[in-house]
């Protein structure tokens, strides 16, 4: 108990808690829409793109996340356009763009020969090492994403539940789809500092699928996913600090435990 009170006094822990909480809620909110649209892997694909974008930033000596945000947003739109225009399924479009992202990162890392250590630090993230600017950026961008979800909540719900019907009620579903993809791109970049490129999609998928095991109402599922995500980030940071474990991986493992518990609960209550 003393340990926990003590660690709360460290400013880097406070920063990690605050920025982590915002990103956690953003990820779970967006993740629910992605999971229900069978677009769970877009987070994985875009995180691979961010690997290339971060390498690009390091290559030109620019702040990597500032480069990653526009590049990943453009790539997310590219995924949408490829699947529309080339008439291929979304997962194939994600595969194409993500492979190009990884390949670009590897080539840039190989050509530069100087920033491999920096680049690989983004693969696993470390929320405990988040800077003031990064914390502020993640809070502002999280707030923007959450506000957009709040503003377009019913449009997103309707277009996710039945896109064709949503169109008949005047909802601009193409706009909503593009909006959701752009929000995902921003959220993926935000999550890199917390869990790293390798584990970003877990932060998007796991809280949502955990909440889906328990709740029967959309709004409740959305809130429940947020709470699960928040607890896993706060608990993950604390546990990782106390046990000297990598925070990103700890957060993901806690999410996986919550998912297993929710599955068990569902099975018990069903019987």
């Amino acid at each position: 108990m003393i340990d926990i009170i003590q660690i709360l006094q460290y400013s880097f822990i406070q920063k990690a808690f605050i920025s982590g909480s915002f990103v956690a809620i953003t990820c779970s909110s967006l993740g629910l829409f992605l999971v229900l649209r069978k677009m769970s892997l877009i987070g994985d694909g875009l995180s691979h793109v961010s690997f290339g974008a971060i390498a690009l930033g390091l290559f030109f000596g620019l702040y990597p996340l500032y480069v990653a945000i526009p590049v990943v947003i453009l790539s997310s739109i590219l995924i949408l356009k490829i699947s529309e225009k080339a008439r291929i399924y979304g997962d194939a479009a994600i595969g194409i763009v993500s492979a190009v992202g990884i390949a670009s990162g590897i080539i840039l890392a190989s050509v530069s020969r100087g920033f491999n250590v920096d680049l690989f630090s983004y693969l696993f993230g470390n929320i405990l090492a988040i800077s003031n600017n990064e914390a502020i950026l993640s809070i502002i961008l999280s707030l923007i994403v959450l506000l957009v979800i709040y503003f377009f909540y019913w449009d997103l719900f309707s277009a996710t539940f039945d896109e064709e019907y949503a169109k008949t009620t005047g909802i601009k579903t193409n706009f909503i789809n593009t909006l959701l993809t752009i929000l995902t791109a921003i959220t993926v970049v935000l999550s890199i500092k917390i869990v790293g490129i390798m584990l970003v999609s877990a932060l998007l998928i796991l809280p949502a699928v955990t909440a889906l095991q328990i709740s029967k109402k959309f709004k409740t599922t959305l809130f429940l996913g947020g709470i699960i995500s928040l607890i896993s980030v706060i608990l993950g940071i604390t546990v990782s600090y106390i046990l000297d474990l990598p925070p990103g991986a700890t957060i993901v493992m806690l999410n996986a435990i919550f998912f297993a518990l929710a599955l068990t609960y569902k099975k018990i209550t069903k019987n």
């Binding site: 229900l36 019913w154 019907y165 949503a166 029967k216 959309f218």
Partner: peptide, 21 residues
């Protein structure tokens, strides 16, 4: 999809609403 009946029926009213719904 965790949509309950009242949420689904409400979607029919969105045609009456502009942004923000």
């Amino acid at each position: 999809f965790p949509a309950c009946v009242e949420e689904v029926v409400l979607l029919g009213l969105l045609s009456n609403k502009k942004y923000q719904k």
